[in-house]
Amino acid sequence: METLAIYAPKLVTASDYIASGHRACSGCGEVLAVRYVCKALGRNTIISNATGCMEIVSTPLPETAWEVPWIHTLFENASAVASGIESGLKALKRKHGYTKEVKVVAMGGDGGTADIGLQSLSGALERGHDFIYVCFDNEAYMNTGIQRSSETPFGASTTTAPAGKLSMGQHTQKKNMPAIAAAHNIRYVATSCSSYPFDIMNKIEKAKQIKGPSYIHILSVCPTGWRSASNLTITMGRLAVETGIFPMYEIEDGKYTLNFDYPKLRPVEDYLKLQGRFRHLTKENTAEIQEHVLTEFNRIRMLAGKKIK
């Protein structure tokens, strides 16, 4: 990583496929992640986008921010649409002399992926279509106003699981989407985060080389939904990784690799205290979160064949 950091600016393309002028909130980590994903994908790409923030901010009729062919149809079917695109291109190649090499990509938010879109994603992964699925996980239904999803973290307050006198907000742990994707025996699964452009681009590059489905889950910082300062977006993502709250790893042919490990993880407090969605948490709540994070991080360490610290 260190050497790459020196040479990287020379290696990264200046081309962008999502234009500036979109209407994302200031400090949006999700649109930043989309930008890096697109840089790595390049121009020979067709994107199927689920309903959600990224669709809304980029395509108010008659405008578009997209410079690659892009289709949005509904909330829960981005993977199924991608299945059709991939199959259509295959038929065109075989029967009608189509020669272009195109990578098909489906993308959606955590709601479009882990909740309402899970069935169509599972179907497309299981059928083995040659496509990349990218989940931009901002940990709630942000487009419709910060409602909880199955990817909302334990303890976060959202508009449909608000903290109140009788509730601490979200009382369930994040659904383990990467493990669900990996359970389809696909060749490449990875997690990444909007604060790590080179990590995102490297992982997309890897996914592009795979024939068949791959899945990339990108934690995408959302100042609006997380109630964090919009100038802290990069910091927030780094803290999520450095506290171990969001481990960055790859699952290649079933084998785990932990990409970022630290001699000592930062306390979760460093991350939680900067976000209004966790403001109501008690010391005990925070301790509970800390314990869970260490257990989970160690579980990934173990899967990656590392010693437990």
């Binding site: 199927s48 149809t73 079917n77 993977s79 649409v81 059709g84 199959s87 065109l92 179907g123």
Partner: peptide, 25 residues
Amino acid sequence: DAEYIPVESEHSAMSACLGSCAVGA
């Protein structure tokens, strides 16, 4: 000679049709 997609639901059947039709198949 056709691609046959045995989808997991009718919602996905019609969604896949959107995709394939949109690339010109």
